[in-house]
Nucleic acid binder design. Structure first.
Length: 175
DNA sequence: TATGAGATCAACT
DNA sequence: GTTGATCTCATAC
C-alpha cells in the first residue's frame, strides 16, 4: 500500500466526467490506530476489507463526505484518502455544486472534493474502473512530497501524506 | 493572518 | 452519550 499510494499522485480521477488530477492523498493501514479499519471489520468500513480498486465513502463530522480508494495488500484492510485534486474536467459542474469560488478552492480538501465531484454514500462500495468512476494512470513521474497526516488525533507522526510537488491545489502546503 | 465556534450525523462505547 | 481522516464564517489581533 505504501508502494501504491505515491503511484496515484498525478493520476486523473473522474466521476461522471467531472474531476481532475490527484495532487494529495494519505495512506491508512489497519495496523495503526488512525485508520477506521483498525478496530476490525464493521458495517461502515466493510468495503476496506474487500478487494482493491473499490471506493470507500464515509461521513465526516456529520457534514462532509470523504473519498477513499481501497488498496488491498496481503489481505489486510488498507486505503488511501483522496485529499485534494487539481480540477481539470467539468469545472462548471464543480462550481455549480460548490457555489461560486476560486478554482483552487474547489477540491483542496476531502470534504470539498466530494462535494465538487458529487460523491456521496451512494458511491460507497463501487468499483473504480466502472462508471461513474474513471481512473487514468499518470503519464510521467512527478515530484512527490511526503509529510505527517492532517486532521487526525492518533498516529499523527507517521509520514503517510503524499502530495504533488509545487501544486497550488493542496489542502495545506508541505514543509 | 490567526484562532475559535458551529454545523450535523453515523457509528461506536 | 461521545466522537470524528472537515469546512466555513465570524471575530480578534
Amino acid at each position: 500500500m505504501l508502494e501504491v499510494a505515491p503511484e496515484l499522485i498525478g493520476a486523473t480521477l473522474l466521476v461522471d466526467g467531472v474531476g481532475g488530477i490527484i495532487v494529495e492523498l494519505e495512506a491508512y493501514h489497519h495496523s495503526e490506530p488512525a485508520a477506521h479499519s483498525y478496530i476490525g471489520r464493521t458495517e461502515r468500513n466493510a468495503v476496506m476489507f474487500g478487494p482493491a480498486g473499490y471506493v470507500y465513502v464515509y461521513r465526516s463530522y456529520g457534514i462532509h463526505w470523504c473519498l477513499n480508494f481501497v488498496c488491498e495488500r496481503e489481505g489486510s484492510a488498507s486505503a488511501v484518502l483522496i485529499r485534494a485534486l487539481e480540477p481539470t474536467q467539468g469545472l462548471a459542474a464543480m462550481r455549480r455544486r460548490r457555489g461560486l469560488r476560486e478554482e483552487r478552492a474547489l477540491c483542496s480538501g476531502p470534504g470539498k472534493l466530494c462535494e465538487a465531484l458529487g460523491v456521496t454514500h451512494k458511491h460507497n462500495g463501487l468499483a473504480l474502473d466502472r462508471p461513474p468512476f474513471e481512473l487514468h494512470p499518470r503519464q510521467s513521474t512527478p515530484g512527490i512530497l511526503t509529510g505527517p497526516r492532517i486532521g487526525i488525533t492518533k498516529a499523527v507522526s507517521k509520514p503517510w501524506r503524499y502530495g504533488l510537488k509545487g501544486s497550488k491545489y493542496l489542502s495545506k502546503p508541505f514543509n
